[in-house]
Design a protein around this nucleic acid. Structure first.
Lengths: 333, 333
DNA sequence: CTGAAAGCGCTTACAG
DNA sequence: CTGAAAGCGCTTACAG
């Protein structure tokens, strides 16, 4: 029966077909670039489309094909450059395969809780990439069981995952620092939310382990929120006492304020003050920060590739796992 | 005719109806919380849903109702806290009205270009909120003409807009600074992309105008990219020559490195060094930065409210425009 | 190459 | 309160 609300009637494929004097099937074929259409017929249809200002209805298409060509990407809040790189890599693969990404950043508590309520969004997409938040358990409950999920930066026993060996990265930093004849500090982030990623702890553990093996130790660990305000304070506290020391930050992001404070206090960064970050963010390249390079771009590409293959049913294994190796990049700090 | 790819047959509303021994209409009514369903019938249906693990298909629902209950929010790249606040406000209103937000941050060039190609996403939502990027002209071309659009932080002659009087905000800062007997500097961001917002320039112009009116002037304007790395350098350059000055930054974001450098160099911020930001971001509250407060949260709420009303056809005017007034908040800097 | 028609999985006015 | 059926706007196997 006709709609309740008498909405403005949209131009549909039927209108185009009538106007062009062809069947709707033919219009559909033109729309989908089906090569088996006579070029004159095609032109007639194209003209009709333009004339009528026809815009296809994606919902009808999705219902009919059973595919949305949409991928949800769930991330923690989007501070820093990390996500920009990761998303660019993901987008690149997706676009190449005819998909678009739908962002779902968990930038506040309500977004976490809203995840279930927004299940509508998760149910509308052909696949899901989850980065750095342990929501795989949550998802299991209400998404379509046949919807593929790929986890990035975190392990999962239910889904495929692409991770970096953060522990090993910590070891690399530890090995590098163990030769320095100075006090060793760590500036890192403490998990404040149950669902937050554990990568910082893994990096710290590797670092610690390496130093112990070499008969060294960490002189002090500073825990800060993931912002610069507090890190400035910490840096000033450190440098007011120590004019000579080595500092490992579990992400480049936290290395920046430390280096800036050191420079402003006219300490010799790279000589008296050694700093090693983690991630190799663009900022680390700009400021020439020594760091443990994480293949962020590769992670994104691999994850997206994997997801596409899953969607197309081109993978048989139950759960795939990629573990990428980080590497030490020595620069000027 | 049956589907080409023999996909795993999903559980549909029909399966549930059969299992529960009712009609599909009744199942639909239960799904939509229609009160005109006998409680026993309802329970039978609910049981069947649980038993079968039924999950409704949102595409079918959207095709049928003609509504997606989705709103696209287009923003520039999501650095800083501004977007977090704005989005929280928008989400709050949307959720209350049964909508979800779909984020579309233009975090790289490709995203700008992809906007048209991703028209699928834009065509799937009931309304669009555009913040800080002049894409309204672009949109006009390929979204549904009846889809409402609300612009935030920017004017538009085609669509509704919610803006802050940035020029006036600049005047407030200028009036405040004109009493200071010190050199006056400005640190601001120069548009690097055609579609970028013009708010920084508007703030600067207001500032300039006010000072001129008071017979004062800006001693130097420093243009920086919208990141901290370069601002540190600028700050060090300023403070190596001037131990006493007043600095207006066209966003709080840029005030942070300046204050940190000043503090690290042991200058008296708030006394010898005056700093006034713009926006009143959380960081300005934490670091007690004097600033021009922008009602970010209100902007988000007003914009979302407006959009919902447009969608429901509850507005007659052609184009609505809200201009909010910023205010000076004097804190310790 | 092309048209007529079935089908995708919902919602809802209609008639009990 | 409830079922049968039309309709939402596409796609695609089928039969020319």
């Amino acid at each position: 029966m006709p709609r309740l609300k008498q909405k403005i009637r949209r131009i549909t494929i039927k209108d185009v077909a009538e106007f062009a004097g062809v069947g709707v099937g033919t219009v559909s074929r033109v729309l989908n670039n089906n090569p088996h259409v006579d070029s004159k017929t095609r032109q007639k249809v194209l003209d009709a489309i333009k004339k009528l200002g026809y815009i296809p209805n994606p919902h009808a298409r999705r219902l009919s094909t059973g595919e949305s060509n949409l991928i949800t990407v769930i991330t923690p809040e989007m501070k820093g450059d990390f996500y920009q790189i990761l998303l660019s890599a993901i987008d690149e693969v997706l676009i190449k395969n005819g998909y678009s990404s739908l962002l779902y950043p968990l930038y506040n508590e309500r977004k976490y809780e809203g995840l279930k309520k927004s299940s509508d969004i998760l149910l509308s997409t052909d696949g899901i990439i989850v980065d750095g938040v342990s929501v795989d358990n949550i998802l299991k409950g209400f998404i379509n069981p046949q919807t593929p999920v790929v986890c990035v930066e975190q392990d999962s026993d239910k889904y495929d995952s692409v991770i970096v060996d953060n522990h090993y990265g910590g070891i690399l930093a530890g090995d590098y620092f163990s030769d320095f004849d100075m006090d060793i500090f760590v500036v890192t982030h403490r998990k404040s939310h149950e669902l937050e990623s554990t990568v910082f702890d893994e990096r710290l553990e590797g670092f610690q382990e390496s130093l112990e093996r070499k008969g060294r130790g960490i002189d002090k660990i500073y825990y800060v929120p993931l912002d610069w305000e507090s890190t400035f304070e910490v840096a000033r506290r450190i440098f007011s006492r120590y004019k000579r020391c080595a500092i490992f930050t579990t992400t480049d992001y936290l290395a920046v304020p430390i280096i800036e404070v050191a420079r402003t206090m006219e300490l010799k960064v790279g000589k008296d003050v050694k700093v090693c970050g983690f991630d190799d963010l663009p900022i680390a390249q700009i400021l020439e920060i020594t760091t443990i390079k994480q293949p962020i771009y590769d992670m994104g590409k691999i994850a997206a590739d994997l997801l596409i293959k899953r969607i197309n049913g081109r993978i048989k294994e139950k759960v795939k796992k990629y573990v990428l190796k980080p590497e030490l990049v020595i620069r000027s700090t």
